[in-house]
Write a protein that binds this DNA or RNA. Structure first.
Length: 265
DNA sequence: AGACGATGCGGAC
DNA sequence: TCCGCCTCGTCTT
């Protein structure tokens, strides 16, 4: 389930192994082998919200977005590679293979800032230091005042990286009902929302499986991963109420909350 | 064994 | 405003 933390985890692995390596083969699903990139060296790997950017010598970059089902695997260069891989990078003994990604393309590194999918992206909440003030400033732009915070916190133009799991978990942690209009939140509340999102995602750079439990001190069953996400009808671990779900935003995304801990005021 | 629901996002209406 | 993509994990029979 790729959200910003997933992409940062991938960037950390690829970023520790690829820079400085010479690429023996670069292939994309739709364009096939890209001969221009053969023999070039990887300069850097970084995450920008949910986008992964692999910078390659000579003003080249690859932009990869995993969408829902994409994943990266590292294989031995001689291992049989899955057919239809979205991205294949071979360097020496290793092959880095991305399957079922939503999108992968080459972009000139110098043009990344003008790329339509990247230019409008809000600051990456996993950047260091976390760009909380910038995220809050964007959420305060006039167009967002009447929109629901559950919808806005996932808006990649406000802050990049937050997905549907974090939306529910962060707002539970902040005790804010997902339907609260942004205009009804105080600056302190909005700051806390983005601080919490940044803190929670950062914590999950250290875990194997995403969870929001380590954010809080109270003892919980070890199987407990989330407070409200995917827990419709189950009891709130703080107050015992039943967790509820509704569909939110243009895309009708599932949103989970505790009606007692997160009252709509 | 089979049904159901889930991550992000674009596109159709 | 809603649907579909594609695959995987969890829950129900």
């Amino acid at each position: 389930m790729p959200e910003g933390d997933t992409i940062h985890r991938i960037a950390r692995v690829l970023g520790s192994e690829l820079p400085g390596r010479r690429l023996d083969l670069v292939a994309l699903h739709d364009t096939g082998e890209i001969a221009e990139l053969t023999g070039r060296t990887v300069d850097a790997v970084r995450a920008l919200g949910k986008h992964l950017i692999i910078e390659i010598e000579g003003d080249w970059s690859l932009r990869v977005h995993l969408g829902m089902n994409g994943r990266w695997r590292r294989l031995h260069a001689r291992e049989r590679r899955p057919r239809g891989a979205t991205v294949v990078l071979v360097t020496g003994e290793a092959a880095y293979v991305c399957e079922r990604a939503y999108r992968a393309e080459t972009v000139r590194t110098s043009a990344l800032g003008r790329h339509p999918k990247l230019a409008r992206l809000g600051p990456d909440l996993l950047a260091d230091p976390a760009p909380v003030a910038e995220a809050v400033a964007r959420a305060r732009l006039p167009g967002y005042a009447g929109r629901e915070i559950g919808d806005v916190v996932m808006d990649q133009r406000v802050a990049a990286g937050v997905g549907n799991v974090y939306k529910s978990e962060v707002l539970f942690e902040c005790r804010i009902h997902p339907r609260t209009p942004v205009g009804a939140l105080t600056d302190d509340q909005l700051t806390t929302v983005y601080e919490t999102a940044a803190r929670l995602m950062r914590l999950n750079l250290l875990t194997r499986r995403r969870t929001s439990v380590p954010l809080r001190r109270r003892a919980t069953p070890s199987s407990q991963r989330f407070w409200v996400y995917m827990r419709v009808g189950k009891t709130c671990l703080d107050c015992g109420s039943r967790i509820e779900r509704f569909l939110q935003g243009d895309m009708g995304r599932s949103t989970y909350f505790c009606p007692t801990c997160q009252p709509l005021s």
